[in-house]
Amino acid sequence: MAGFGIKNKGDRGFSADRGLSKIYTELWELDENRLKPGTHYCINLQGGRYKTYQCRDQAKDPLFSWVKEEVLRWPTYRTFIKLLDNYETETGVAEVVTPEEEQENWAFLNSCMETKVMKKAHQYLVSKGEVPSSEQSFKLKLYELWFKLYRRTGDTKECDSSGFEHVFVGETRGEKEVIGFHNWIQFYLQEKAGHVDYQGYILGTKPEEGAESHLLTIKFKWKEQVKPIGSSFIGTSPEFELALYTILYFCSADRHTDVTIAGQDVVLACFKMGRHGLGTCHPKLPKD
């Protein structure tokens, strides 16, 4: 079983949730569409920084040296990518969902529900009494959780955000700040298009030499606005992340949950937006 390739640091304050660790490791093992470093993609970490406020760019080259682009035509990847241009990135600007975009949302969910990962996630959530056993009813729950629009900023009456936009696409706030943006596929495509400037990883989070890294904490600029510290999985499939975060939303009462996935300690953050919205979800490594 391939792991994350990052050495556990033995954080004395870390206490893994056994139930979530078990189901997440099962999802990891079921993720047939997870990419393999060196086979499907290659990253170039370059330099790192101890402090997020350090301004010097520690990486002159892109993070992704290459990605085998045939993988982006796999069903869940292809339907996921179609959603990435459906949003206004600036908070406070109203989102408008066209009938075509709604169809694209459903196509993505339908594609994910064909995978072993999402079927297992559904089964688990039913066993916990969190969602209906009907697949169609579950998909309605997923749609509401991830695609229902809400107001992220308090100074506007417009519905300007959604869970999917924040987590997977990314948003900007004001003239200098990037918020959300926790997906590697979006990062790769935006970097390829010249919109992302990778500026280095955060020291203490570098994978072991020659290891298969599937979790990174980095600094980058997106459309000239800064994300001083951002963590995301690398090479995981869209369905794995959708399943993991959906379970987290329904089954974790805490904002930060410690889990162990395939032998790697990970802290998962989940912040809810009101009664029915998902504000953000993302992974990060435990503190030293």
Rank of each mutant, 00 (worst) to 15 (best):
G154P: 02
V126I: 12
E177G: 06
C159W: 10
L142C: 07
V167M: 04
G163C: 07
G194I: 11
K128I: 04
H122P: 01
G174T: 05
F181C: 07
Y124F: 13
E165M: 09
R173E: 15
Q136S: 10
L140Q: 14
T156A: 14
L125H: 11
D197E: 13
V178G: 01
P132H: 00
D160L: 03
G154V: 03
G180F: 11
E175G: 11
V126P: 01
E191S: 02
Y188H: 06
E177L: 15
E177I: 14
K157C: 11
T156I: 14
I179V: 15
R173M: 14
F164Y: 01
V126W: 04
K148Y: 07
Y150Q: 01
S162I: 11
A193K: 12
F147P: 00
L149F: 07
E158F: 09
G200S: 13
Q123H: 14
S133L: 09
V126M: 08
E171A: 09
E144Q: 11
S162V: 07
V131Y: 00
L140M: 12
E177K: 14
Y198S: 03
K119M: 11
K148H: 12
Q199G: 05
F181T: 06
E171D: 09
R152W: 12
D197A: 13
S161M: 12
E171Y: 03
L125M: 15
S162G: 09
G174F: 05
W184S: 00
Y143G: 04
F187L: 07
K157E: 14
Q199N: 08
D155A: 04
V131G: 00
V169Q: 01
G170K: 12
Y150N: 02
Y124I: 02
V196E: 08
T156W: 08
N183D: 15
Q190A: 15
S127F: 11
P132M: 01
S127R: 14
K157T: 13
E175Y: 09
K120T: 06
T156D: 10
L125C: 14
T172Y: 08
S134F: 08
Y124T: 03
E191C: 00
E175F: 09
D197T: 15
H182S: 08
S162H: 12
F138T: 00
D160R: 05
F181V: 07
K176Y: 08
L189C: 09
G129F: 00
V126E: 05
G200P: 13
F187K: 01
A121Y: 03
L149A: 06
E191F: 02
D155Q: 05
F181S: 05
V196K: 06
E165T: 06
F147Q: 01
V131I: 03
Q123Y: 10
H122Q: 08
